[in-house]
Nucleic acid binder design. Structure first.
Lengths: 208, 208
DNA sequence: CTCCTTGTGCACTGGCTAGTGCATTTTATC
DNA sequence: GATAAAATGCACTAGCCAGTGCACAAGGAG
C-alpha cells in the first residue's frame, strides 16, 4: 500500500501544468480544462486529487515556494567569512539576483500579488515557506561576518532586510516587473551598486 | 459648447467608483454592473464614455497614477539643502513612506501587478505618469545636496534608486503587501533605518 | 416649442467555465 | 485472473457577465 499506483506521477504532472497555465493565463483566466489538457490528464483526476480549483492553485503556489526557498538558501549558503567581504557579498548578491529574476519567481510573485486579496492565506504560505527563512538565513550569515570583524552591524535582521532591498527593488524596476530580461551586465551592475553601498554603510574598512 | 452638460461630473463619478470597485474586487471579478450601481449611473453611460471595460480600467489606473504622482512629488519637494541632511532626508523619507503605504497606492500596485501580464500598456502608463518622474525628481534633489557638499554621491540616479529601495522594500515586507496597517512608530523605524544606512554610505561626515 | 445630446431601465444574447454524473477502461496488487 | 482503486471521456447543469438593442426621459440650446 506504499505505492499508490502512479498517483504521485499524475499529481506532480498536474502541479507542474497547473503552475505553467496559471502563470501564463492568471488564476481566473486559466480554466481547469486547460490544466487537464496540458497535464495530459482527465479533468476528473484533478478534482480527485485537489478537490477544487482554488486548492489546486494553493498547492501549486506552495510547491513553487518550496522550490524558490531551496534555490535562495543555496545562494545564501555561499556567505562565509573566509574571503574578502566584498568578494563574498558580490558572489552571494549576484546569485540572489539571479534567483529573484528567475522566470518562475516572477510568475510566483505575479500570482501572489494578483490573488492574495481574495486568498489571504497565499501570502502566509509564501512567507512561511520562503521569504522569512531566506531573510533569517541571510541575517544569520551576516551576523557571523560581523562576529569575524568583517562588518560593523548592530542589527543583523535590519542589515539583511536592507541588503535584500538594495538588490530586489532596483531589479524590480529595471526588469519592468520581470517583463524585461536583464543581461548579465545589468545584473552585475545592480549587484555591484548594492554591495558597494552596503559596504560603505556597514564595511569595517573605510571606503574612499 | 464648452459645457458638456454634466458629462464631466458623470465621468468623474464613474472613474471614482471604477477604481473603488476594481480595487476591492479585482479587475476580472468586478462587474461593470457593480461599477454602474456604485456610481449611480446606467451601464450604458459607462459604455458611452469609455467604450469597454478594459478602457475604463486603463482610465481609472491612469487617474490614480496621476494622483499618486502629485503626492509623491509634493514629498520630494521638501528635499532642500537648507538644513541638516539627516533631518531633511528623514522628513522626506517619512513622507514618501506615507505615500507608499497609502491605501490607494497599494490598490494601484495590486491591480497593476495582477493585470499587467494581460495588459502590458498598464505598466507604461504608471511608469510614464508616476514612477519615472518621482525617481527623476529625487535624483535631481540629491544632486543638489551633493553639490552643496552635504552628500558624497557619484551617480544621483543610483542614489535615488537606492534611497527608494531602502524605504519601499522594507515597507512592502513589513506591511504584508499592504494588508497590515503600519503604525507611526514602525514608519519612523523604517525611515530611520533607511536614512541611517543611506547617510553612512553617502553622507559627507564620518558616522561613528 | 423643438431638437438633439445625454442618460435611463430593462430585457436579452452569446460565450465561457466550475463542477458533477455516469458508464467505461486501465492498472497495480494479491 | 480477480478485485478495487484510480483514471478516462463525454455530456450536462448552472451561474456569471460583457456588451447590445430599444423605447423612453430629462434638459439645455436654438
Amino acid at each position: 500500500m506504499t505505492t499508490t499506483r502512479g498517483r504521485i506521477d499524475k499529481r506532480q504532472a498536474i502541479l507542474d501544468s497547473a503552475f505553467t497555465v496559471f502563470a501564463r493565463d492568471g488564476y481566473r483566466q486559466a480554466s481547469v480544462d486547460t490544466v487537464a489538457a496540458t497535464a495530459g490528464v482527465a479533468k476528473h483526476t484533478i478534482y480527485n486529487h485537489f478537490g477544487d480549483k482554488e486548492s489546486l492553485f494553493r498547492a501549486a503556489v506552495a510547491a513553487l515556494a518550496d522550490d524558490a526557498l531551496a534555490r535562495n538558501l543555496a545562494a545564501v549558503e555561499a556567505l562565509r567569512p573566509d574571503r574578502e567581504p566584498a568578494e563574498v557579498l558580490t558572489e552571494v548578491g549576484r546569485k540572489l539576483a539571479e534567483c529573484y529574476c528567475d522566470e518562475k519567481s516572477w510568475a510566483l510573485r505575479r500570482l501572489l500579488y494578483a490573488e492574495f486579496a481574495s486568498m489571504p492565506e497565499l501570502q502566509d504560505i509564501v512567507r512561511d515557506r520562503a521569504t522569512d527563512k531566506v531573510n533569517d538565513a541571510l541575517a544569520d550569515r551576516l551576523a557571523r561576518l560581523a562576529l569575524a570583524g568583517q562588518l560593523r552591524i548592530t542589527d543583523p535582521a535590519v542589515a539583511a532586510e536592507q541588503f535584500g532591498a538594495l538588490l530586489t527593488a532596483p531589479l524590480e524596476t529595471r526588469s519592468r516587473l520581470g517583463t524585461r530580461k536583464l543581461g548579465a551586465a545589468e545584473l552585475d551592475e545592480v549587484t555591484g551598486n548594492a554591495v558597494r553601498t552596503f559596504l560603505r554603510a556597514f564595511g569595517s574598512e573605510q571606503v574612499v
